[in-house]
Design a protein around this nucleic acid. Structure first.
Lengths: 213, 213
DNA sequence: ATCACTATTGATCAGATGATCAACAACTGC
DNA sequence: GCAGTTGTTGATCATCTGATCAATAGTGAT
């Protein structure tokens, strides 16, 4: 009862239509997960025939993979610029943990979780996943290395610590996504865990993390 | 070229057939993931008509949920009995981390990851996931509490530490599943993380963890 | 041996999915 | 204006999914 049968879509330039498709795919992914990004769901959202979406994309695997990459790289950029606002490595690490674990980005977490699962049957997506994980790792490793250089952290393998940290964050977010209220608040204890990994005194990391936290 | 067209399935007792179906679903889940557990894949594996599987199960959601629960509860039982072989809480915790992070159970990790994703569209599965997470948490919490009582660990919230620990383990396993060789070895650093969470001296946890490790 | 019971099946449905292609129609350049 | 280019579409396919149901054929009880 809500579909005024679409007449004909406005004719647009390929570039414009392509980005419209990408945007639609992106918002569907964030709202309903990657699995909901289908030929027809994308077409419906921008009020266009399914065949048009197929015309613009080589195949759906590619669109899903590209959508995943877009969502995650946007998240990375956002966090990176947030980190840039803070002077010391300790602060940056604290902000990193806080912002990634406060539940603000649960929609992105859903995308991650579905990407891990779908990636087992979508090679292009699997490649995107590995690539974005590498990007994340590079960001975290950078923070850690600067902290080591500044004498705030202590480790001889910043790369591994970065991987470990990412794994922990992802796991806690996935867990929170499923339990949703049942589990303990994430983030309070991970501080001590990270202190342990980086040879910091107990409580040194999250002291005065956010001004009004 | 490999299907001698099935003639007729042997007639079996309901109990026997039901467990045969459960077993088939279980092995499919471990070999190919939960998403591969379909009416037809299960029927094919036990060489039976799809309708028979439907006859034994109220619906596929239920079978998938039950299969997940079966896989995970078996894993829990296995780990619990492994823990029972070790006397001190510190050893038990070390064994717990080691056995869950050595890659031995990657097939179960796949099931977990797909359960998180599929659970968003399968309520019965979502309920099973929450239930099994609770079971896991209880096991870990028990280890931690015994360690606190023995004066080996230090925390005033064993429940939260258990949740945190599980989240970390799940995340690291999921990560290892995707990267598979690219990432650092899991488990070496988590020891220090856990030491941080439980107020232990650096290196105290994984010393002499496994006899020949 | 015959009968009632029931495990099992083939056929079939409805609903998704991705994908292709000839045809239409709106621009653009001449 | 007219023609060529091309964005767009409807129709249609092939596959996969879960699910239902009347009909068949073993099985155990009498």
């Amino acid at each position: 009862m809500s579909r005024p049968p679409r007449k004909k879509a406005e004719r647009k330039s390929p570039a414009e239509r392509a980005s419209e498709i990408a945007d639609a795919a992106r918002s569907i992914a964030l709202e309903q997960g990657l699995a909901a990004v289908t030929l027809r769901s994308v077409a419906t959202r921008i009020d266009v025939a399914p065949a048009l979406v197929a015309h613009y994309e080589p195949n759906m695997e590619a669109l899903v993979a590209a959508t995943f990459a877009g969502v995650v790289s946007a998240e990375i950029d956002e966090v990176v610029s947030l980190l840039a606002e803070h002077p010391t490595p300790r602060e940056r690490l604290a902000v990193l943990l806080t912002t990634l674990l406060d539940g603000t980005r649960d929609d992105v977490t859903v995308v991650w979780v579905e990407a891990w699962a779908l990636g087992r049957r979508n090679d292009a997506l699997a490649a995107s996943v590995r690539q974005q994980m590498d990007s994340w790792q590079a960001v975290v490793q950078g923070v850690i290395e600067s902290g080591v250089a500044a004498g705030e952290f202590e480790t001889d393998d910043a790369a591994s610590v970065a991987w470990q940290l990412l794994g922990m964050i992802d796991g806690l977010n996935a867990q929170a996504l499923v339990l949703w209220g049942e589990a303990a608040s994430r983030g309070s204890l991970i501080g001590h865990a990270v202190e342990g990994m980086l040879g910091m005194p107990r409580g040194a990391l999250l002291v005065a993390a956010s001004p009004a936290g």
